[in-house]
Nucleic acid binder design. Structure first.
Length: 541
DNA sequence: ATAGGGTTAG
């Protein structure tokens, strides 16, 4: 019976059969083994069924399997973690008369999944022993909670502690590098993967593809992809999304065609998001419509609100803002913030204050705390010169206690350190030189026809003041610093937390030509690669 | 016989 129940724990659909086997076993008066409970609890965990888990918990108590058996207690703990019931997990942990490393690690994971990395780290620190799995739980916990710096730090400490790194441990570090987007650390992690032969592992390889793509090294991502001995839906989805974010839509679509035509790897909803984003970032409206139409029947993928958001983005970016609005209205499922946000973004590009109002009103209800939509709406009104409306939006923001998060850019220096710049900020030690270089650079650009795009400034101030504000944009400061410190042949890589503005985009293009330098900017939307006066985004961003 | 893994969207 126990073997049969164990065979059921692989699939969430087999929870009921395994419970039925258990009751049959009880009717025949066969006493359950501790392993029987472990197997049953694993089924409940796989099905994420808290009711079934709690029932098994009380049965284990009454039949004496818990808390006396460590394995059963650990299985209970794992079940509560899988069902994201942190409190019950903690209670089981506290009631255990004996705990091993597995119990400690399970609870670390429970706290990490709940987003409480402080408690997770404290628990990890007080755990009496730490093996590679425990360390990995800490590293990936940080990575999952958008704390990539801490994740890498923990990874380094794990190595220093003399723990042998395996594939799973490395994946956490790779994912952290993807979030950081820092090239030198990405190379370092890749070296570790190579040295240990981990690159052939599908999960590590897929993570590396994603990491290189997010670091702006799309050709390296492709190389890792091409050299992988085995690829699955994650690998393809990462590569397609990476190509999409770099504006290489044709390659993304070609890869998708290869995937569905020449492999046994079935695309999923994430893959299709990559494909639709690729179309969007290249203005390929007809192709996007085609893939969107094919999703349900050809690939058996239901169209989610996320897919609609991609379509709204695609249509809206291409100037079909009214059609995008009609698509939202025709949706069979409830549009979420992403859908309205895409519409609002389109209104910004094509100056549609009325539709913007509709979209923003929905967003203010759906995501009242999200600052982005207020700023977008206010900027749309500002470009239309509707200053009264602008101040109304600003007032609304103030009333809700929302503060704009400051624009910032980062660039990795040759010292390997990441240098941070805020808009109009003079705190960098080399700020004077940066400012001087910018002045001189702007002068030179003007000789080749550069005119500052004053409309990129959304404040109602004089033209002179607008030009001064433009010069202080964080990505320009980062650019100047990079020009000041770079070696010949270096690619300048800048990361920005917000979308790059039109004026900075123009300046990057011109500088790439005048200074004969390649510049890669990662903004919050995508990558821009500037070479010889041209950007890979071809104006779509 | 129990613990740790990769992708997406304004």
């Amino acid at each position: 019976f126990t073997s049969l129940i164990r065979a059921c724990c692989s699939s969430p659909d087999l929870l009921l059969p395994s419970l039925r086997l258990f009751s049959l076993m009880r009717r025949r008066r066969l006493p359950p083994l501790p392993f029987t409970f472990s197997a049953l609890l694993k089924s409940a965990a796989a099905a994420r069924s808290l009711p079934a888990g709690a029932l098994l918990h009380s049965l284990a108590l009454s039949l004496g399997a818990f808390p006396s058996h460590l394995f059963v207690a650990n299985s209970l703990l794992a079940m509560y973690v899988a069902c994201s019931d942190l409190r019950s997990a903690r209670r089981v942990f506290d009631e255990m008369p004996l705990r091993d490393l597995i119990s400690w690690t399970s609870l670390v994971v429970a706290y990490a999944r709940s987003g409480d990395m402080e408690s997770a780290a404290a628990l990890f620190a007080s755990s009496p022993a730490k093996d590679v799995v425990a360390w990995t739980a800490l590293v990936t916990g940080y990575a999952h909670n958008a704390m990539p710096g801490e994740a890498l730090d923990a990874f380094v400490r794990m190595r220093d502690a003399g723990v042998t790194i395996d594939e799973v441990a490395l994946v956490g570090a790779v994912s952290a590098c993807a979030q950081l987007g820092a090239v030198s650390r990405a190379r370092w992690v890749w070296d570790i993967a190579e040295a240990n032969g981990f690159g052939t592992n599908v999960v590590v390889g897929s993570a590396l593809v994603d990491m290189y793509a997010k670091c702006g090294l799309i050709d390296d991502a492709r190389q890792v992809f091409d050299e992988m001995p085995e690829r699955n839906v994650y690998t393809y989805s990462s590569m397609i999304a990476g190509l999409a974010s770099h504006g290489r839509a044709y390659e993304a679509i070609a890869l998708f065609r290869e995937m569905v035509g020449a492999t046994n790897v079935a695309p999923n909803r994430v893959t299709l998001i990559g494909v639709l984003t690729a179309c969007s970032h290249a203005g390929m409206v007809e192709e996007g419509r085609f893939f969107f139409a094919q999703m349900k029947d050809k690939y058996r993928i239901p169209r989610s609100a996320d897919h609609y958001a991609c379509m709204v983005d695609l249509l809206g970016r291409a100037g079909l803002v009214e059609e995008a609005l009609e698509l939202v209205k025709s949706m069979p499922i409830k549009p979420h913030g992403g859908v309205w946000g895409a519409l609002l973004g389109a209104c910004r590009i094509h100056n549609k204050p009325e539709i913007a109002k509709t979209a923003a009103d929905r967003l203010f209800k759906l995501e009242p705390e999200c600052i982005g939509s207020y700023i977008l709406l206010s900027n749309i009104y500002a470009s239309a010169g509707m200053w009264d409306e602008v101040s109304k939006v600003r007032k609304l923001m103030r009333g809700r206690g929302l503060k704009k998060n400051p624009a910032a850019s980062w660039v990795e220096g040759i010292d390997g350190l990441v240098h941070e710049f805020f808009a109009g900020d003079a705190s960098h030690p080399r700020s004077r030189e940066i400012k001087k270089l910018l002045e001189e650079l702007m002068g030179r650009l003007k000789l080749v026809g550069y005119m500052p795009i004053l409309s990129s400034v959304v404040y109602d101030v004089s033209d002179g003041e607008k030009e001064r504000l433009l010069k202080g944009h964080s990505e320009k400061l980062a650019l100047a610093f990079a020009l000041l410190t770079k070696r010949n042949g270096d690619v300048i890589r800048i990361t920005k937390n917000l979308r790059i503005c039109e004026d900075c985009h123009l300046v990057m293009s011109l500088v790439s030509k005048v200074e004969k330098v390649e510049i890669v900017v990662r903004d919050n939307m995508r990558f821009h690669r500037f070479r010889n006066g041209e950007c890979s985004c071809a104006g779509f961003w």
